[in-house]
Design a protein around this nucleic acid. Structure first.
Lengths: 217, 217
DNA sequence: TGTACATCAGTGAACGCGCGTTCACTGATGTAC
DNA sequence: TGTACATCAGTGAACGCGCGTTCACTGATGTAC
């Protein structure tokens, strides 16, 4: 095979990229605590010292991976809400994107959420920007009168909890293994999200009635 | 200090118990992947080979711990619903017990949910019996007409998702670190659970109206 | 185009470490009589 | 109560392993002239 159009093409091609990819694959197959630089080097077919020309140490590799995962996740959510104008549909799209990402890229979730030693500042910033998608969608729902008034952050916490809970229950095994649920990811996900939406709009209607039908702001 | 009333009082007192306790403390402080038999032995003040008289290997210790964690968790849920007759209150009590357990004993949650190599049969059985509390509570709610009709397993999945999501978001850091939420565990938990209850009863009422006010079965 | 030199990526040996597990042992506890 | 023996729990040395990281090296690539 002819070498690709990579910029760095001297020895390996692009070892940096290859190391990161192998690391993702390793986390996916064996989990975060099984991620070792030596095994990654082995997978790539390179001496165990070679990766040190691209990453200061194991932590530096994990740091790059965390950044990638958050960027991918954020992109997935951004794409999901693109072109969706109905606020409840926007919420569904975000929820589906969240859970689908977790199911399709569980290793990303593991790296994003399970690092004990995650650098707080970075994780907080990127985590917040992702969380912001949910907050925005709920504000849109409130403006359209399909979500109850009140602190949108609190509604967002509900949405985050239900979506994250469903995602990790699925990723971590309980749901994939339990009899009545096995193989029913999509329908369960859809009904869960629809139910949440109905909850929101029903609550908005009741609030409206309680206030003698004043329009939502 | 005089030796207690332990049955086994020859050498250490009760090394088996001490090892398990030290292991829990170690997981709590440093995480599951930092749990090593040698460190545990060190903490207990005993040679690193001593624990092998009580546990065949590291896996055997973890297996015992998993059993303990599920038993404790189950007990916590059972206690929570004791003496509570109102079905929605029962659901709140269960949800609060679930999240409180996760916050107070995060190491139990880690061992119960994060083991990649958990023996499926055992985990499934105990996990199911715990999950059954939620299903029961939702059936009670349906019978009382404060939850919509339909498959209770599906409602239970919603409840499980929201409660588990809230719990792990808290335990894993995102929520404890995010500005507007820090330090507000109890009020957020209560409002989340109440909201879920209102969702259920509102949905039940709407279903009732749609069916021309027929009584819930 | 050709040569001399600098830079850079990967090599392979070596280090020290902590781990799980095994083993022959020893000393303390329990038991039969 | 006393003695002989069996059992059992903890000891300390030893094994082999895979890890992260460092180091002097080498050979390939890029660059100045």
């Amino acid at each position: 095979m002819k070498a690709g159009k990579k910029t760095k093409d001297y020895h390996h091609g692009d070892l940096r990229r290859a190391v990161i990819d192998a690391a993702w694959s390793l986390v996916a197959r064996r989990g975060l605590n099984e991620l070792t630089l030596r095994e990654v080097a082995r997978q790539v077919g390179v001496t165990h010292a070679a990766p040190y020309h691209h990453f200061k140490d194991r932590e530096a590799l994990l740091s790059v991976m965390t950044g990638e995962a958050f960027a991918e996740f954020d992109l997935a959510l951004q794409r999901a809400k693109q072109g969706v104008s109905d606020p409840l549909e926007e919420l569904y799209a975000l929820g589906a994107a969240y859970t689908d990402f977790a199911r399709e890229r569980p290793e990303r979730i593991e790296v994003m959420f399970r690092r004990k030693d995650a650098p707080d500042a970075v994780l907080l910033d990127t985590g917040k920007s992702t969380f912001q998608h949910l907050v925005d969608a709920l504000v849109h729902c409130q403006e359209a009168g399909v979500a109850p008034a009140g602190d949108p952050l609190e509604l967002a916490l509900s949405a985050w909890s239900i979506v994250h809970g469903f995602a990790v229950l699925w990723v971590e095994g309980p749901l994939t293994a339990m009899e009545p649920y096995v193989g029913k990811f999509e329908p369960l996900r859809d009904r869960l999200l629809r139910s949440f939406g109905e909850w929101l709009s029903a609550a908005a209607r009741e609030t409206g009635r309680a206030h003698d039908g004043q329009d939502p702001s």
